[in-house]
Design a binder for these strands. Structure first.
Lengths: 234, 234
DNA sequence: GTCTATAGTTCGATAGAC
DNA sequence: GTCTATCGAACTATAGAC
């Protein structure tokens, strides 16, 4: 699509074209479903160039996954540090906003392909295969520990173990919301819309903050099963 | 593995052997990463039999996905109906227990391959491709609406729109927990374990119940962004 | 129902000209 | 850096003997 006549600011080198195309094709088809030929076609380049710039399909995939993770986590860290900069302790809702905003906003950015990355991230972050676990850990473990530490500073009565669980359960909410599966609309006859970034973030923020605070309440975290009679089929 | 000498109760016909093997191979490799040859080898049957019993790889995948969904949702429904049977209104935690228990327990059932199904379910439920959305809707829309209705009966001050969001955000927590990615252990130097079913359910129950109740609080659900100065890089 | 054999594609990757 | 051409290996699916 991008020809030599386009403005300088829109010019992209071949490597970026391939990364953008790969991001879209991997997001739509997964690693195994995507083909290097389809990526080359999407990028408008010769398929041999993929192996020239990236050694293999595997390395291309890892490059795509790593490309945006730095920007996401830099922004999360900047927002979080700004909250603590004045010396006080921010509200839990503010901390969660700092965590959620970069990915939720990216998931609504169709102009620069951000929505493709978030769909890919959902796939990798929820995968149980060895490659998914390795890549998720490499790119997102450090920021995870920073936010767990921050949660511990803000919420009294929370053990580190419970903070990790609260963080992960919160992440799972954010993961689903950044991908826009359209399921909310399906279940509500179109009443629920997921295109308003501020509303999506506000709901997730409220939900997760209350959930984490509840985990700190020792009365609530007993493992006793509530009284239930499992009725047999009548 | 299962030979002719095994007890009658352990005998399985070829079709079930293929479904069990396909469940494991699809869970480990996804739809495109799994091959019919690998499934046949895992099942110990000739690869041509897969196309004899199921017409195509696609239909086999759908059969695998549909096989356990009926049992899961029947049990959810039975547990839920038992809670309302006495005429009273159950606690929100009890309703969530009924929803979470079938999948969380299935995810820890390695003896009958249930853990393979839950990993597959995570993949399909979070997928944005057309097949994933279609299959998720076909198997899980009906039970979703039943539980949204139940949430509306239990929690005062909740609109249907917010109940759907609360349900979906709760589901996302349950989805992550049923797959056992091991990430909690990674982030806590092994301190967090996810093998105790009752503890996993209790934490999720507490977290989600508090989150849904918070959504009903009109003061909390404003879409106003909290005061934050996004610090530029120093 | 179960097997062998194979048709017909498509894949990732590379060699080598320009 | 970019292209054409192609290799060797895999894949799904089926035909046909038993």
């Amino acid at each position: 699509m991008a020809q030599a006549q386009t403005a300088v600011s829109e010019r992209q080198d071949t490597q970026q074209l391939i990364l953008d195309a790969a991001e879209a094709v991997f997001a739509n088809n997964g690693f195994d479903g995507a083909t290097t030929r389809a990526i080359a076609d999407e990028a408008g380049v010769n398929s041999a160039l993929i192996h020239y710039y990236f050694r293999s399909k595997e390395r291309l995939f890892e490059a795509v996954f790593a490309r945006r993770s730095g920007a996401i986590n830099d922004r999360r860290r900047r927002l979080k540090d700004a909250l603590f900069a004045s010396g006080g302790t921010p509200a839990l809702e503010e901390l969660l906003d700092a965590f959620l905003r970069p990915t939720i906003e990216l998931g609504r950015d169709e102009e620069h392909g951000g929505h493709n990355y978030t769909r890919l991230l959902v796939h990798v972050a929820t995968g149980t295969d060895e490659r998914s676990r390795r890549m998720t850990g490499q790119q997102y473990d450090a920021i995870a520990i920073e936010f767990v530490d921050a949660i511990l500073k803000i919420v009294p009565g929370l053990t580190r173990e419970l903070a990790v669980w609260g963080y992960l359960q919160g992440v799972s909410v954010g993961v689903i919301l950044m991908a826009r599966t359209g399921r909310a609309a399906d279940l509500s006859a179109g009443e629920c819309r997921d295109d308003d970034v501020e509303e999506v973030i506000a709901r997730a923020r409220t939900f997760i903050a209350a959930g984490i605070r509840a985990l700190a309440d020792p009365e609530k975290t007993t493992t006793k099963k509530p009284n239930q009679k499992e009725e047999t089929t009548t």
